[in-house]
Design a protein around this nucleic acid. Structure first.
Lengths: 141, 141
DNA sequence: TCCTTATCGACAATCATTATCATTTAATAA
DNA sequence: TTATTAAATGATAATGATTGTCGATAAGGA
């Protein structure tokens, strides 16, 4: 999980911009960030970082398997460092908080698909929406 | 499921534009369409239909419960007539074909969430991606 | 039929993202 | 260490989907 080696092994250059972007992802493991958010945070590590470079770095990291794209309802993309542990997300419709959901029933679903169709499933995305404990509590009060 | 009554009951007007947009959705039950696609098809029913009106009608139908928003990987929104029958989608990464997936494990997932978190799940979206039977066959040949 | 106002359509504005391109710089070889 | 070269960067323009604006139109009740 060394950025420099991972980049070089695929013929890419190791730059402070990429280091900054990747550092932000690592520091926010489990928290999906938009390119805008990543850019803002990464600028603290490399102040002249351009937004374009942020977009490009995030896509590159996904191609290298270092990050994953997270698909939520919103119109923006989200990214997360790839820990190798598959998970989904629960998004609070009230405050926007995002909780990680370790449970995944994709294998069970694949079985059902196999029974009912010849479709070959290679990827999936799933998000749950509702209300986080904090918002539920403050509603009552 | 009568558009005119449904609109009037909520204080909205029944217009040929809305009739055209809704007609397209009904005619394509089970097939998620982008606003662009809906517009193109609906223009055959009402030639001067504006794209803006198409967008507005689709959102209105969702609010009225006549249509549902479908969330796929893509950057565009998709809409489908609401038949009341909950389902998900399988999208072919090769040709873009969309198959309906009747199976849904949301109840099982909710149970697991209840065990591990106090999050209240009210909505969810899920899409599977892979290769449809047609594309799998042509790959072999 | 007439009025009121919701709705419409054309167009401008916005927002996220991508393409362009001149400049900078990482990495390699001398 | 320095020179070289192509990859990478960042400013800016372009794009594409969606939303806002506003004068014109027409649905539906009086």
């Amino acid at each position: 999980m060394n950025l420099e080696k991972r980049l070089h092994s695929r013929g890419y250059r190791y730059t402070p911009q990429r280091e900054a972007v990747f550092g932000v992802l690592k520091e926010n493991e489990g928290k999906p960030l938009s390119p805008e958010e990543v850019h803002e945070l990464a600028c603290k590590r490399f102040s002249s970082l351009g937004l374009t470079t942020t977009y490009r770095s995030l896509e590159l990291f996904c191609d290298l398997g270092l990050a994953t794209r997270v698909h939520l309802h919103g119109d923006s993309h989200y990214y997360e460092v790839n820990t190798g542990k598959h998970h989904h997300h629960m998004v609070c419709l009230s405050c926007g908080a995002i909780e990680i959901l370790e449970a995944c029933l994709i294998e069970e679903l694949k079985e059902r698909v196999r029974d009912g169709s010849d479709f070959l499933v290679t990827e999936h995305c799933m998000s749950l929406f509702g209300y986080c404990p904090g918002c539920l509590t403050s509603r009552k009060g």
